[in-house]
Simulated assay, not measured.
Amino acid sequence: MKQEIKDEALEQLKKDILFGFENGDELFESIRELFYDEDDFDEEWLKVEIESRLQKHVDDSKNWQHPTDFERLVKVFDQLNREKIVSLHMAGHTRQDAEGDCMEIIDELGAIGIEAKGYCYYHSQDLERAIEKERMLFIGYDSTNQNNDIAKEVVERIVDLLQTNGFNVKWNGSLDTRIEITSINWKKTPDNIDYNYGRVFEIIEKYNNPKTELKPMRNKPFWKFW
């Protein structure tokens, strides 16, 4: 196994562990998939690296102050979901992925008689900026039907909740510009919680009255494009 392949695998592993969404098995699967065409890839080496690095991350988390910025962001997104603004954490790798996931949920909500007002999200490329020196996180948003008046209500509500929960927020008032959370201190460990489909529908069911019974959602994996 070439050293350059090891270096590339470790770089991706470092990011994924800091993101904090994947457990050990998921980390192995996603990294191995990245190098699917490497016949001499050392899987045992990767398993050892994942175990040691993930354990260190978990050990470090015991000294974190709470609530973390992620925990506060969850609080914001949960409230938005209560208000029928579909809000997804780490929704895919690109804007197209994220908006596709949001609209899929919105369509399924519509099928049971719940009309979503809009949506917001951040994806893995956004999260890379949060864990690097930039320490900033973009939040994308829109209304369900790209109605500018409703989109303005959506973004203003998102900004208000973020600021109320202590985030430093920048938004220039243009619907063509995403919300920017600055000076974010990203800290998260894997907790086996589905912060997308599962959590959205759990909240929707609790705080709204669907016309038909919600069907159990399939386990939808995080998107990864390499």
Rank of each mutant, 00 (worst) to 15 (best):
I158N: 00
N165E: 07
N23C: 03
I181D: 02
E128D: 07
W223M: 12
A98R: 06
R178S: 09
I184H: 03
K215G: 01
V74A: 01
K133Q: 13
E128G: 06
K56R: 15
D16P: 06
G110L: 13
Q55S: 15
D69C: 06
M1K: 05
R129K: 12
G20L: 06
F201Q: 04
D69E: 08
L109Q: 08
E49G: 08
N147F: 09
L27A: 04
L73R: 04
F77Q: 10
M103I: 13
I139A: 02
S52W: 12
I31G: 03
N185F: 01
D25R: 14
E180F: 08
F41R: 12
D97G: 04
Y207C: 11
K220P: 00
E108C: 09
Q12I: 15
K224V: 09
G113S: 03
K117F: 07
H57F: 10
G173C: 07
L34N: 08
N168P: 05
F225R: 13
S183M: 00
E43S: 13
N148D: 05
L80M: 06
D126Y: 13
F167V: 03
W186V: 07
D194C: 10
Q55Y: 15
E49H: 09
H123C: 03
K47D: 00
S124W: 10
G110Q: 12
S143P: 00
G110P: 10
V86C: 08
Y121K: 04
H57K: 09
R135H: 15
N172K: 08
V74E: 03
N165F: 05
E202W: 07
L13A: 06
M217T: 07
I193T: 14
G92Y: 01
E108Q: 14
L175N: 00
